[in-house]
Design a protein around this nucleic acid. Structure first.
Lengths: 202, 202
DNA sequence: GTCTATAACTCGATAGAC
DNA sequence: GTCTATCGAGTTATAGAC
C-alpha cells in the first residue's frame, strides 16, 4: 500500500500470483498483471525481464518453501499414525494458505513433468521408499491391515489435496458458500487422518 | 491410418485431444495440432471453423457421454456400500479409458466454473442431496460411523480421480513405469471402495 | 524507476489455386 | 478436400524520454 522502495516489485508479485492462479500462465497477459498492480506494463519487464521469469519467480519461490517441510515429514522417524496425521495437516494447511498452489502444481506437472519435478525438489525427491518400508513393517507386525504402500500414499495425498481442486465445483455447482467450504477444509485436518487410520488399523 | 473419407477429421480430433490434454486450450496452437495430425493448418478451420469449436467438439462431446452415467449411479436406490462400489468403478474406469479427462476437467473447472458446469451437466446436476440423505440415514441406523456427507463424498471422488492427476509425478519422479502404474489403477477399482467401507462400517 | 510509444513477433483465420 | 501464402489482431518486449 505505502510507496516505498521495493513496493512496485511486491505489487507486481502479488498481482501476478493472483492472475496467474486464476487464468494460468498462457491465459494471462502482462497487461492484466500491470493493471491489477496499478503500474505500467514496461515495469514488469524492467523488474522481471520477461513473462516466463516472472511466472517462475512467483510460483517456484512459493513451492520451494514447502519442499523441505514435506521431505522432513515424509522421512521422519515418527510412528506411522502420527506421521499420517502430521502429513495431512501439512498438506491441508499448505493448501488453505495458498489456494492457488494445487491447481498450479497439477497443471504444470501435467505439462512439463521432468522440468517441474526438478525445479520443485532440486533433484532431491522426498523419500517415499523409506515411508513404504515403514508401512510394510507395520503390516508384518500385524498392527495394520495389508495394503500396498503406493495405494496408501495415493489415498493420503488424494484426500488432502483434491478437495481444493474441486472447490469451484462445490461453490458454484452445489451452492455451498465459501465460508462453509473453508470450514469443511479446516475440519479435514482431523477428519482425513481419522478416516485413514479407521480404515487400516487392526 | 488408412486414407478414407472422414480420415482427416478423425486424425484432427485425436491429435487435438492429445495436445489439448497436455497443454490446455490456451497453451496449444493450431499449428501444433496440424503437425501432430500430419495435415495442414487450414484444414483445421475447414473442418471445425475455429479453435474454440474444435476444443468443444473434442471435450464436451466426450464428457457428456459420462454425465448421465454418473447421475444414474449417484441417484440410484442401491444400498450404500453397493453404490460406493459402483461409483468408484465408474469413475476409475472412465479415467483409465480417458487419461486426459481428469486434467481437462480440473483445469477448466478452475478457469470458468459456471460455464463448465453448465455445459457438462446441462443445468441438471447429479443429485448429491439424495446421496447425502442416504448417508445420514445409515448413520442414524447405526450401520456406519458418523461422518458429514460432504467429507465422505469428497473422499470418494478424491481417491478415484486424483491419482490420475499425479501420474506424471509417479512415472517421472519415482520411476514407476507406465504398465505398473496402469496395474495400480486397475487394482484401485477394488482397493478404493474396500478402503472406504473399512473406514466407515461399524 | 517509471512512463509512452512502438517495434517484433505469434497465432488464429481467410483467400484463392489446385 | 487439401494446400500455400498472407493478413490482421493481440502480445511480448524494447527504445528512449523524463
Amino acid at each position: 500500500m505505502v510507496n516505498k522502495q521495493g513496493a512496485a516489485e511486491h505489487l507486481i508479485l502479488s498481482a501476478a500470483k493472483k492472475i496467474f492462479s486464476a487464468k494460468g500462465k498462457d491465459g494471462t497477459t502482462m497487461q492484466e498483471i500491470a493493471d491489477e498492480a496499478g503500474i505500467n506494463k514496461a515495469l514488469l519487464h524492467y523488474y522481471f525481464r520477461n513473462k516466463d521469469l516472472l511466472f517462475e519467480k512467483v510460483f517456484f519461490a512459493e513451492l520451494q518453501k514447502f519442499s523441505p517441510i514435506l521431505k522432513t515429514a515424509i522421512a521422519s522417524d515418527a510412528p506411522l499414525f502420527e506421521k499420517i496425521e502430521k502429513l495431512c495437516e501439512t498438506y491441508i494447511r499448505m493448501a488453505i494458505n495458498n489456494p492457488f498452489l494445487p491447481v498450479f502444481v497439477i497443471s504444470e506437472i501435467n505439462k512439463q513433468p521432468e522440468i517441474f519435478i526438478h525445479r520443485m525438489f532440486q533433484n532431491n525427491l522426498p523419500d517415499f521408499q523409506k515411508f513404504s518400508k515403514q508401512i510394510e513393517r507395520e503390516i508384518e507386525l500385524d498392527t495394520i491391515k495389508p495394503i500396498l504402500p503406493p495405494h496408501l500414499i495415493m489415498n493420503i495425498l488424494s484426500m488432502c489435496v483434491f478437495p481444493f481442486l474441486l472447490k469451484p465445483m462445490f461453490v458454484h455447482g452445489m451452492k455451498i458458500n465459501k465460508d462453509l467450504y473453508n470450514d469443511l477444509m479446516l475440519q479435514r485436518i482431523q477428519e482425513v487422518p481419522a478416516f485413514i487410520i479407521n480404515s487400516i488399523k487392526k
